[in-house]
């Protein structure tokens, strides 16, 4: 029973981290047909912002999430205006943007290497200790991660489904021409989507690095996993991605407990291959997003 509870707790915790790391990637694919492989840079920026805020500036933890959000939004704004807007109208956008964002990711990683150094650091936005549930200890860090992840998911889903900005982002993702004919400035809607995604990714970076370590390439692993989750869920399906993040988190932890630590990620990838053979558009996907 304790092992089962431990698997649930660790799986939900890992799933929450995957979910929060996936939202931004899924949002941009769903709205802009944009595979943002610089996603990991936002995660690193969020982590380093938390480190800079608490360790270098000596500020309170209260400022960490707002500052990470602001840094991520600024990053999204800059990525849109410096890179995306110049190639968005092209037919080859979906391929060009993959190459361009890989280049951006390399630039950011090198920049962080030069500024912060290559050594792994402990990210200070973390809580030690835990809650005892019988023989099982539920770390406070896990509670924090799950709580922030759930709050973040609720906020993002609320913005996308209930606010004017969200309705516009959804409209643009479904029908760009019709959106223009309703008076929507499509480019401005994309800039807003990128700022939202950037902010969310940076907050996820604070959570991810709080549970692991902080180093310039920290976002790479999360990006790969987020990509896998997005593809399984059906590219651009935000709710499906969140659901699959928890399913895969639980699956990975269960495999780790039963067969050993080293089998978790390979088992997850094997499951992905099987799912993609059976459901080429993902579990919740209708069809691949086609830019018009």
């Amino acid at each position: 029973m304790d092992i089962f509870l431990q698997i649930i707790i660790s799986g939900v915790s890992l799933g929450a981290m995957y979910a929060v790391g996936t939202i931004a990637l899924s949002l941009l694919w769903g709205t802009m047909g944009m595979m943002n492989l610089a996603h990991g840079s936002f995660i690193a920026i969020g982590g380093y912002m938390a480190y800079w805020c608490m360790t270098v500036m000596g500020a309170s933890w209260i400022f960490v999430l707002p500052l990470a959000l602001a840094a991520g939004m600024l990053g999204g704004y800059l990525l849109y205006h410096l890179v995306v807007r110049w190639m968005f109208e092209r037919k080859e956008f979906s391929v060009d943007i993959i190459i361009a964002t890989v280049a951006v990711a390399a630039l950011v990683e090198n920049g962080l290497l030069n500024v912060a150094g290559p050594e792994a650091k402990r990210q200070p936005f973390s809580i030690s200790g835990g809650l005892k549930l019988g023989d099982v200890v539920l770390p406070y860090q896990t509670i924090l991660t799950v709580a922030v992840a759930i709050i973040l998911m609720v906020i993002v889903l609320y913005i996308v489904t209930r606010t004017k900005m969200g309705i516009v982002i959804r409209a643009v993702s479904q029908q760009q021409v019709a959106s223009q004919l309703m008076g929507v400035n499509v480019m401005s809607a994309f800039a807003q989507a990128m700022m939202l995604a950037g902010g969310v990714a940076a907050i996820s970076g604070v959570l991810v690095t709080g549970a692991t370590q902080l180093f310039p390439g920290v976002g790479f692993d999360t990006t790969i996993k987020a990509l896998v989750i997005c593809i399984i869920a059906g590219l651009g399906n935000l709710r499906g991605a969140i659901f699959m993040a928890f399913v895969l988190g639980l699956f990975e932890v269960a495999v780790q407990y039963i067969f050993g630590q080293q089998y978790g990620f390979p088992a997850m990838l094997s499951l992905v291959i099987v799912l993609l053979i059976l459901r080429p558009h993902g579990l919740f996907g209708k069809e691949t997003v086609e830019r018009v």
Binding site: K164, I167, R170, A171, Q174, Q175, A178, M182, V184
Partner: peptide, 17 residues
């Protein structure tokens, strides 16, 4: 060119953007 995955009401709300 309606917004296919939005409700009728949401489509109209987009018209009132």
């Amino acid at each position: 060119l309606v917004f296919p995955d939005m409700t009728v009401e949401e489509n109209l709300l987009m018209g009132g953007y």
